[in-house]
Design a binder for these strands. Sequence first.
DNA 1: AAGATTTGATAACAAATGTTATCGTCTGTG
DNA 2: CACAGACGATAACATTTGTTATCAAATCTT
Lengths: 191, 191
Amino acid sequence: MFNQFRNKFPLDDSKWIEYTDCFKRLEVPSKTILLKEGEISKKLFIIEKGCIRVWFNNNGKDLTTQFFFENQSVASIESFMKKSPSPASIETIESSILWWISKNDLDKILSEIKEIPQLRDRFIDMIFERTFDYMKYFVSFIKDSPTQRYLSLIEERPQILQRIPQHYIASYLGITTVHLSRIKSKLLHRK
Amino acid sequence: MFNQFRNKFPLDDSKWIEYTDCFKRLEVPSKTILLKEGEISKKLFIIEKGCIRVWFNNNGKDLTTQFFFENQSVASIESFMKKSPSPASIETIESSILWWISKNDLDKILSEIKEIPQLRDRFIDMIFERTFDYMKYFVSFIKDSPTQRYLSLIEERPQILQRIPQHYIASYLGITTVHLSRIKSKLLHRK
DNA sequence: AAGATTTGATAACAAATGTTATCGTCTGTG
DNA sequence: CACAGACGATAACATTTGTTATCAAATCTT
């Protein structure tokens, strides 16, 4: 699982083994809740196989804000960094194989690798990228109609359309399943 | 203008003078465009007096995403950091007194102060805070109705209600001025 | 102070989106 | 194989929000 990263990091072997030993394997069925809204996020997950969504509960309706697939890492970042209650839940969509690391272990690793300047800068860049991603989401949500957002999904993240059940996609687009059905049917008949 | 920060930074006097000399004063009337959509952001502004909005042009309609007041700093961050065309414009709302620093000068200062660990960590924290702010905006937009968003504005940022013309507020809430009028009138008559 | 511009309210109508209910299909499980 | 539950389409109706137009008040300019 981690060998793909092995030669990207200038660490000696003993450190490398110490770090990778911090990760534990976890196999779970679909619809497993990995973090519940209100809890404090103490684990960072990496997906070996499967997919995961992050969602908010709003008066019983759920609102999905992100999907994650193989090789991506998932946590409720704000909760994870600040030890505050998570505003969102994290849940598997398919049955999945995951690896997780505790916040304690990750903190230790991060404080050590921050001394390596190129990794430190890389880390800062990553945080910026995350910020810019949120900006993009935000702007698209308030600028574009649901139809436009659906079309961009088709263009930019076809994997979502293929693997994710439609009611989660509707929730991701911020609309009801009924409305998503209407959008699809309109697009079909116009062609 | 900068003396309020003087004792927060462990810099010797010559460095302090060198750094503050990088800032230039600028006095502008209202509705001055400081950065145009599509341009590359090369200046970071700090507001001594006045207020500023950041907005996107979407098919002629504008969509305001942020307001800034006294003592806040403003730039199209993504454009500023990555030297990419800015997706947003920056414009004064009131006539304003500003201080600005060029990206070159700021980069020089940042690379120097990053060597001071506590400032470096502070800088990383600031970036995280910015990320969390965007998350909050984003979530509120997709979770709450315009009426709820308007009520939160009253609660959390009354300054905006007092100083900002209503059509910019409507644009900030993602609705038309007509609809904002309706919301206000409904709230009034219900009380 | 007169006229122009900006700002905000309101009404009438149109378009987008939500709600509820029904039905058919698919899929997994016993 | 049968059946329950999940998933998706569609219709009818309700609600929200946008569009266009008009008017009044406030503010700015000269």
